[in-house]
Simulated scan of single mutants.
Amino acid sequence: MTGPDRRLHAPLDGREAGGRPGALTFPVPPGASPGLRAIYLHGAASGPWVWADGFAARIAAAGFPGLALPVQGRDDGLSDYARDLRAALERPSVLIGHSLGALVAQRLLDHPMVRGAALLAPVPPEGLFLSNARLALADPALWAEVARMTEAGVPSPRVVRALFGPRMDPRAAARHVARLSPQSRAALIEAQVPQPVVPGWIHGRRVLVLGAAEDRLIPPDAVRRCAAWHGAGAEFLEGAGHLMMLDVGWPATAERVVRWLETVPG
């Protein structure tokens, strides 16, 4: 176990985005010359707050201003989330998506304003069916509890352990999971099946695919298939769990994204 998490009682980064309910912005430091804007899309049952505990601020400090959009809505489907993202693409941007948010990002990789995407623990274009079936066979108890994770109520300790790597401070993990909220069932059902994602040889965008070595929800083969679809290689972060932007080692993950962003043409 690591020592006390310095962020346990720290205020979250990010500012409310005017005109976009629930969204957060992450400006670059005063006097800095801003690079491409990063648009953040969170995974199921979470919110823009997952990026606001240091991750997006670290990337903004490197010169890439951020906008974290809510991938939520009680009855919304993936097309509704894609529509909201499309409305935010009024200027050149890169997409940084996690899990379900990464699937939404992949649906817009051929948008003329998208310069590339960093996909973290992504749901692959094939959808979640294979990953869910594997989890149901390997650990049916965990599978059943994960299925209830997006409903009201605090997730079970088993789910908490599945979301983070073994080095995560339990107090920090509890603080994060207490903020999880219900997700649209329509979107989750839709995410089980193959999605309208253009392959890399057509969209031609730069894509970074990062998997978490300790991820119980998105297995390595799904991450590799996602990367192959986009003509990219998959990288795996040692010690990280599914919520890699909040897990121990998140600064190194953010720095990896920054190094990739510096290679994406504007």
Rank of each mutant, 00 (worst) to 15 (best):
R158Q: 13
G239R: 11
P112R: 00
L237I: 15
D221W: 14
S99A: 14
A187I: 07
R216C: 00
P170N: 04
A57D: 13
G97T: 11
E238G: 14
R91I: 00
F64D: 03
A32F: 00
V123T: 05
P182V: 05
F129S: 12
A254P: 09
M1I: 07
V197I: 12
R74S: 13
P140H: 01
A212W: 13
A136M: 07
G19F: 06
M1C: 00
Y40F: 15
A147Q: 14
T25C: 10
A212F: 12
G31Q: 04
S93A: 15
R20T: 13
I96Q: 07
S156M: 08
V159M: 11
H9E: 04
R115F: 08
L103S: 14
S33Q: 15
Q192W: 11
T150F: 05
A173H: 04
G63R: 03
G54P: 10
A173D: 07
E235L: 13
A191N: 02
A61L: 05
V193M: 14
E238L: 09
G233I: 06
G18C: 01
A57Q: 14
W49M: 08
T150I: 13
L135N: 06
W260I: 05
A56V: 08
G77F: 02
V71K: 02
I189R: 15
G239P: 08
A32T: 15
P199S: 06
R206H: 12
L246R: 10
T263M: 10
G200S: 04
E16V: 14
L78S: 05
L163I: 10
W201G: 10
A212H: 11
L100K: 09
P140F: 00
R171P: 09
L109H: 07
G14E: 06
D110F: 00
V71E: 13
H230E: 11
L119P: 01
E126Y: 02
L208N: 04
R74N: 02
E214S: 06
E262I: 04
P21E: 06
A178I: 01
I202C: 09
L188Q: 09
R179T: 10
P70E: 10
R20A: 01
E145T: 01
L109S: 01
P48W: 01
P30W: 03
L210I: 14
P125T: 10
D247A: 04
V160G: 11
R6D: 09
W51C: 08
R148L: 15
A60L: 08
A144K: 13
S79N: 12
E238D: 15
D215I: 10
S33A: 15
E90S: 12
P30A: 14
P122Q: 02
F55W: 11
V198A: 08
S46H: 12
A117Q: 05
A121R: 02
M168C: 14
V159L: 12
Y40E: 01
F26T: 07
E126F: 01
L135A: 00
G249V: 07
R115H: 03
G18E: 15
L142Y: 04
H203Q: 11
R225C: 00
L78G: 05
G231A: 12
P27Y: 09
P122I: 07
W51P: 05
G211H: 00
G22K: 12
L188W: 09
R206F: 04
L36P: 07
F64W: 02
D84S: 12
P124C: 06
A32D: 15
G204F: 07
D221A: 14
P140A: 03
V50H: 08
P251V: 03
